[in-house]
Design a protein around this nucleic acid. Sequence first.
DNA 1: GCGGACTGCTTACCT
DNA 2: ACAGGTAAGCAGTCCGCG
Length: 875
Amino acid sequence: MGASQLPLDQFFETHEPRKKKEKPIKKEEEIIKTEKINDVEVKAPLTAENAAYLLSVEYNGKKGCAAARFYNPRDHLIHFWYDNSEHHPYCFSNIPIEELKKNTKITGHRGFLDIQTAEKQDLLQDRTTQMTKIIAKDPLSIGGTTGAIRELLPAAWEANIPYHKCYIADLELTPGLLYEVTDERLKNVTTVPEKIKDEISRLFEEEPNEVKELLVEGLPLFLSPIPDIKRAAIDIEVISPFVDAIPRPEQANFPVGCISIVASDGTKRILLLDNKDFERGEIQENLEGVSIEYFNEEKELIREIFQVFDEFPVILTYNGDKFDLLYLYNRALNHLGFRRDEIPIIIRKDFVALVRNFHVDLYRFFNNRAVQIYAFSAKYKTTDLNAVTKALLGIEKIKVEQPLSKLPLLDLASYCYRDGEITLDLTRYSQNLVWKLIMLLMRISHLPLEDVTRQGVSSWIQNLFYYEHRKKGFLIPRPEDIKEAKGEEASTQAIIKGKKYKGAIVIDPVPGVHFDVVVLDFASLYPSIIKVHNLSYETVRCPHEECKQNIIPDTDHWVCKKQRGLAGLIIGFLRDIRLKWFKPQSKNRILGKETQELFYVVQQALKLIINAFYGVFGAEHFPLYCLPVAESTTALGRHIITQTIEKAKNMGISVIYGDTDSVFLENPSESQIEDLKRWCQETLEIDLDIDKVYRYVALSERKKNYLGVYGSGSVDIKGLTGKKRHTPLFLQDAFFEMMDVLSEVKVQDDFETARNRIRTIVKTCLDKLKNLEYSLEELAFRVQMTRHLKSYQKTTPQHVKAARLLERDVEPGSIISFVKIKGEPGVKPIEIASIDEIDTEKYKNAVESTFVQVLDALNIDFGSIIGIRRLDLFM
DNA sequence: GCGGACTGCTTACCT
DNA sequence: ACAGGTAAGCAGTCCGCG
C-alpha cells in the first residue's frame, strides 16, 4: 500500500534539499539506538520483525537532535530512536538571501548553521514566493531565548512552531502508526486490507485528485490496528494533619501514605506507609486479590513507585500533572533527599512528564470541552473523577464519612485502590474505547501522545493544518498576515454584547402542544457549509478581482472560485469519509464486532475534529484565526435554514420551531418530507435528514426550551429549569414526576387526567415544603464556582456569598451547595444552615417558575392548578 | 428612603 | 482556552416621588 513507500527521499528533494551524504554514514548502533528502560541499553533495531508504534517526538538537548519514542508491542518497552537525517530547526525570512548573508548578527549567531533559498506557495496572495530559509543548530536559537534568530529578523515565518511538531511534519510522521527502519530511514509499515481500501476508494472515485491524495494518506490512520498499550494507573494519598485543606503539591509537606497501582496486565498493588499512629482497620471487600505492601520508611515507598514507573510504558493518572506526580517529585527532591537523577519525573512547562516513558493525565483529556461534548455528549457535567466515572462507567469513588487523614490504614488503601482502578477503567471500558479514541486523535492530528491528551482542539487542528501546509510546500501565514489580507472588520453585528459577529438564528416557537412532530436537521451543517462553499482563510476575501462578485449572503465577503481552499478540502474529506463509510459501517453486523467497534471509534474521533473546525476560525488565539471565515459560515447557516423554512411554508407545512440547523414540522406527510429533503439537496447542496419523531412536543414562547415525547414514551427535555443541575433535588424530583405523567399522554384528551395528576404533584411538593419535610440536601441549590473566590469583584452572586461564609479555600470548579434562608444574608451553605431558617416563600417561587415553564406550554395556569386560595393559605 | 425599571453579571443550557 | 444565542435569577444603579 502507498504508505509503505513513504516518499521521504522524494520529499526531501522537492521541499527539503539536503546535502548529499557528505557525512560518513553512521554505524548502525548509532543510527538505531534503542534503549531498554532501566538504563540498560540494548540493540534492538526497529526491523520488519520488530516494528514499533511511534508515540512521540521531542527535542533531545543532550544529543542535539530529535528523539522519537516507540512502543514495541512484543516486549512492551519504549524504544528510542534519534534523528539521522540531519534535520535542523529553521524559520523563513522574506529578505533576499544575498542581503541576509550580509547580516552578521544572523550569520554570526552562535546557533546559525546555514542559509538557503526556498520556494513557497503563498496562499493568501495566491502566488509563489521566494523565501530565505535560516537553519539553526538548535530550536532555542530560532526562538525562545533572548537574541534568538527570529528576534533579529524584522519578520519571521514558521518560527513559532515547537521543534518536535516541525520534525513530525517535515518527515511526514504519524504518531500512533507502526514503523520500522529500512535503509536507515523510518518507514511506516502500516498496511490496510486491500478489500476495504478498494471499497472506500470507489466511494471517492468522483472526487478530485487532492481528495484522493488525502484518502491515501488517511486510510492507514483510520484502518490500522490500534495497540492496546500496557499501562498502569496510579493514585497517591497524602497523610495530612489538616482536615479540610488539600495538601499543596508545591510544598509537599506531608508524607505520602498510600499509592495504588492498577495495570492493564493484571497488576494490582497497594503501597502503604506503615504508620504506627494509625489504626489498621479491616481489609475491605474491593481489595481481594490485591497485593498490599507495607513500608516502614516513606523513602522506600517512593523508591518503589519510581521503580514501578519503569515497568510500564504508560502511566495513567487523574490530575497527575497538578497533583500526584508533582507531589511525588517535590516530596522526593525536597523532603526525602533524592537526587534529581534518581527521580524519573520531569517537570515541564505545561505538564509533568516521565523520563523514559509516558504520563497521560486523563483529567486533562476529559476536561477538554470538545471531548466532553462531542465524544461523550456532555454525559458528565463536571470533570472530577467521580462525576466522569459515574457517567461513563456507572462506578463511583468510595464515599468516606471522615477526612481521609483520619481513616484507618486499610480504609485509606481501599479508597486509594478504587481511584486507581477506575482511572484505569476509564481507558478500558467498552473495549478500550477511550484509549482507541486517544490513539486515533493522535494519528489524525499528528500530535504526540503527551500533547494530544493535554491540548485542546485548536491545537489538534492547528497541527493538522500545519502538517498539510508543510507537505504541500505552502508557507504558513503569520496571524498578522491573515489579518492584513482580510481586514479586521466584521460585516455583521452580534446579538450578544461583546461577541464579534452574528451567529445562528433561533426561530420563535409556536406555543402550545403539537402532535406528530418531525424534526429534520442538516447533517453537520457548518462543516458542510465550509466544504460546499469552499470557505478557508485563503479563499474568503481572496485576492482575485473576478471572485468579488461571489458574495456570501448577508455579508460583504466573497469567496474564491479559482482555488480549492485547504479548510474545505480537509474538513470535506473528513466529513465525507465519516458519513460515507465509518458511520454506516459501524452498524454493519457482517464486519464482526471488532471491526464495528473500531469503526465506531473512528467516526467518533472524526466527529470530534469536524465539529470543532468552524469554532477555531472564530477563536482569536487560533493562529489561523480568520473572522470572515467564521462569519461567512454562520451567515450561510442562517441563509440555509431561512430558505428551508420559507420553502416548507410554501409547501404548506407548518414549521413550529427551529434552532441553528433544525426545523420542527407539525404533522408533515411523508411526501412533503421527501420533497423538502430533495429541494435542500438540489438547491442548497446540503443534506437534510430526519433527526427525530415526537408523539407530541410542548412549546412555550421560550426559545431553547421544550419538551418532546417520543412514540416510545421516553421524554426529551431541553433547557427546562427542572433539568438543570443547580436546581434543588426536591424540585428536580417533582419535575421528573411530572415528566412521567406527561410521557403517558397519547392524545389531547389525556391532558385532562394529566392535569389532575400534576396538580397532586405540585400540591404535595408545596405541602412538604411548608411543613419543612425536606432535608437541607434536598433543598440545596448546587452552583458551580467557575473562578477563584476573590475574583468576584463586580457582583456577589449567591453561591459566592455562601462560599464566603464557609471561611475556607474553595477551588475553582467546585460546587457550592446552599439554601435560601430568612433574613440576612439570604443564603447559607448547607454545612452551617439549619432547617428552621429556610425561607419557604423563596422556594415556593422556585417551584412555581419551574413548573410554569411546562404548564405554559400546556396552556395551564399555575394558579388554577393549585387553587388561588391555596396560594394565599401558603403565604 | 424606597420601589420599580433598567442594565450587567453569572451560570447553565442549546445548536 | 473552538463559536454565538437564550433563559433565569440576582446584584447593582438610576430615577422619580411634591
